[in-house]
Write a protein that binds this DNA or RNA. Structure first.
Lengths: 119, 119
DNA sequence: TCGCTATATAACGATATAACAAATTAAATT
DNA sequence: AATTTAATTTGTTATATCGTTATATAGCGA
């Protein structure tokens, strides 16, 4: 009835502001150090200090990267006395990283296979 | 039998090289202009020239961004005479963007709701 | 209040990236 | 071969971002 089959009708495009917001989120995931912090937080909660030690980076650096992840809504923080406990606030982060890692593994394995002697 | 329940055992961490590769992929998605190109390509195939026109950006700029997306395995290209047709090479791109957009929509709606008069 | 610890912020240099313009390559047509 | 069109490559400039050092803030105990 209502839905005419029309090949001319294209999916609507995202607005400029939407594109910028999406880009901002992906940018939060575009640094190895931030991914390392997220990767650690996927194990368990860490304090900022523990993340500094575990990541092997400087304190100021870790703090700044955590702020980026927090602003992107990916990491949450809970103050407890002197320490600040950090945790993954958005389960989507796990999904995104999982997807990306699976895809990369597939690609790498395919490439590796290209070097295997043919049967 | 083999799997002992042990809260001390943590999920293994990704290697440095893996982190860098993942970061590189996400970085490809971290620019509004590249997202705009992908968004256009989600509708249909475009030539580079059509993308230049549709995106409103310069030719060199579009070309460079497309190269980034190609190197990330997200966009494929097929030469046909003088033109080069571009297309989404990895369906994961659609999923990733879809996930991110849904999430942002939810968040925005939640924030908007916070300004609604209480019932 | 004083000092100690945990974290955040500011300022800085080095590097990376986007946008634009100009030069170059590549394919098709005459 | 010369011309035209399509796209890439190459500078160049402006801006953004990373990592580091130094400083500031906040909570806790003596």
């Amino acid at each position: 009835m209502s839905k005419k089959k029309n090949p001319e009708v294209l999916k609507p495009l995202l607005s400029d502001t939407a594109l910028e917001l999406v880009a901002l989120r992906f940018r939060a995931l575009s640094e190895p150090m931030r991914l390392r912090l997220l990767n650690l937080l996927m194990q368990k909660e860490y304090t900022v200090g523990q993340l500094v030690e575990a990541s092997g980076s400087g304190q100021a650096n870790v703090s700044k990267h955590l702020a980026v992840l927090r602003d992107a809504g990916m990491v949450g923080m809970r103050k407890e006395g002197l320490s600040t406990w950090c945790y993954i606030a958005d389960p989507m982060v796990n999904e995104l990283c999982e997807m990306m890692c699976c895809r990369l593994r597939e690609e790498m394995e395919a490439k590796a296979l290209a070097f295997d002697p043919k049967i």
